[in-house]
Design a protein around this nucleic acid. Sequence first.
DNA 1: CAATTTCATGTAATCCATTACATTGCATTG
DNA 2: CAATGCAATGTAATGGATTACATGAAATTG
Lengths: 359, 359
Amino acid sequence: MSTAGSKGKGQGAKGKRLKAAPQQSRVRTVKEIAAIAKVSVATVSRALQRPEIVSEATRLRIHEVVKRLGYTPNALARNLRTARTRLIVALLPDIANPFFSEVIRGIEQVAYENGYSVLLGETQSSLVREQAYADMVAARQADGIITMSHRVPAIPIDGRLPVVNACEYVKDSEISSVYIDNVAAAGVAVDYLIMLGHRDIAFIAGPPSSPICVDREQGYQLALQRAKIRANPALTTVGDFSIEAGERAIELLLSQGQSFSAVFCSNDEMAIGAMRALSSHGLRVPEDISVVGFDDIRFARYTSPPLTTVAQPKNALGREAMTMMIELLNDPEVPPRKRVLSADLVVRGSTAARASKRG
Amino acid sequence: MSTAGSKGKGQGAKGKRLKAAPQQSRVRTVKEIAAIAKVSVATVSRALQRPEIVSEATRLRIHEVVKRLGYTPNALARNLRTARTRLIVALLPDIANPFFSEVIRGIEQVAYENGYSVLLGETQSSLVREQAYADMVAARQADGIITMSHRVPAIPIDGRLPVVNACEYVKDSEISSVYIDNVAAAGVAVDYLIMLGHRDIAFIAGPPSSPICVDREQGYQLALQRAKIRANPALTTVGDFSIEAGERAIELLLSQGQSFSAVFCSNDEMAIGAMRALSSHGLRVPEDISVVGFDDIRFARYTSPPLTTVAQPKNALGREAMTMMIELLNDPEVPPRKRVLSADLVVRGSTAARASKRG
DNA sequence: CAATTTCATGTAATCCATTACATTGCATTG
DNA sequence: CAATGCAATGTAATGGATTACATGAAATTG
């Protein structure tokens, strides 16, 4: 069932080496433009940077030449001089993760609107790679870093670190962060399950190294307390945010003979895994077990049943992070901020009132 | 159900402007390192670039100073001099698309392994943005472009364009491309449906502007011909690769009263949409209708039923594209190649033998 | 031992645009 | 009309590294 596979062929047809066609169009420099337009390089630069301070006649002349020769100023030279690259590193563990890819989209949008570009910093959770990207800032190849992990990369420069934290947050009060109130959001989700009559609510946590996971767990605990439900520690398991982790968590609970009528998961992937594992054990969602996820990734509404989940404002998180970054770069004196966006519970088909009788 | 929202406060507590703490650690330059290590700047540069040509004593001395002062060479200055940025733009319509995000991951991996970084060029299919990223190459802010669309961005430089095409392909024989044989791959999928006894096979096509979509449709047509099945044009509809498009396509077919026992979709999202629409009409997959997708995105195996689909080697496509790009940058003389990777049909639960009797 | 390499290092040009400072000419003002 | 200001443009310094070319010393060769 494999559909062929061929190597590229060797030498191209006319593989002679045409030595860059004698086409008159080499790479241009200000100097050439200046010479042709009969002005100094300074004037060319000014005509391009701040046209209003150049007389109309010269300006038009220069622009004509620039256009005719297709001149584009060398960004490297400019950046070296101005000490700004207009590049921002977006540091994230995994670009294929649907949550992060939505966030990065928000980042990209605001970046584009402001003349910045985004450098992809996929770390695969490796500290080495994280550091490698942080070093790009030190090497002045990027102006700042938006990190989606809970670590603040060490950048050996002094003064204000050009770092903004998104989704996750760090204790460091010098670092601006955007995130949601995970304790509250998780609480809302669990409140809802309780309202549906569930009392034995399992929790699939994320890696405890990340503060947001701790918060979500705390939200879960607090919600139970509010409802005067004694939390059963055996109902809490830890996963790594993968679909498989969700499956394993359910397998574990079932194999231990735990009794529960609902599961709250720290992210949607684990919820999807959980739903799969449940149905493969003949348990129906939501009739037998209700499932709630977290994030509201693109596919959450297309699972069957559609997943009830806490919707993070993914795009807004990204947009806001980039906005803060630009603010910070424009004025290193602006005080760091911790910005909290709101998250909403989206009720879909994976949750239902607790069945009158059942484990 | 909303969880708070707060603005940052105005002036910071000690908002005086501390004039970059007297901490002795400013940004360093070769000059300083050279002065401290009592050598010339050339020697420092050499000690860092090609340590082997510097005597051991000096090398160690320089490295010691570099380390002690935490010196990182200014990448902008280096890039300006060497005319290389080691940055590659990855041009794609949508980073949140799970197919592309896997490809870009492959790109990122090879880039990282070779000391390159990836600049995210999300275009939202806008020509303006596509051009904006292409211009970054002209401005020497990036070394090349890997495009995942079927257009070749216009870069006003001469000689070999530093462009590689991934997933899609362009006619231009001067541009290297990596892709799968879409005609064959689609054919394999449809052959399989035919083998299961299906004869009325609907096809949900993608945007005809893209060559790969044309190819997939052709593969579908050819497979029918091979089986001597007269293609029913009414069974082919066009979508835009979105889940909603898949739903709409099915709605349309059903409302027209078309009869079919299988649907082949040009991508997985549309297949997911199709499955939803089918089941919302009380049609069971695969008992009543078989569904086949294309791409094998991460979630394909987690739909219910799990989706039978043509698995594109997403990571390999990305890796290969970046590999070609590096080759091309290292030697602009290497002839352009068209590299075809193999794709395999992955049979899961959304396909079954045609029911003995049924529309 | 003189002649020739080789090795290690230094000097200075170079990459290309930005911009501080200098200059020129003209208009305004008292 | 001299003095002053401003507008337009030019000259040259600057950003920070890389590297071609130059130099001196040590090693090799005949």
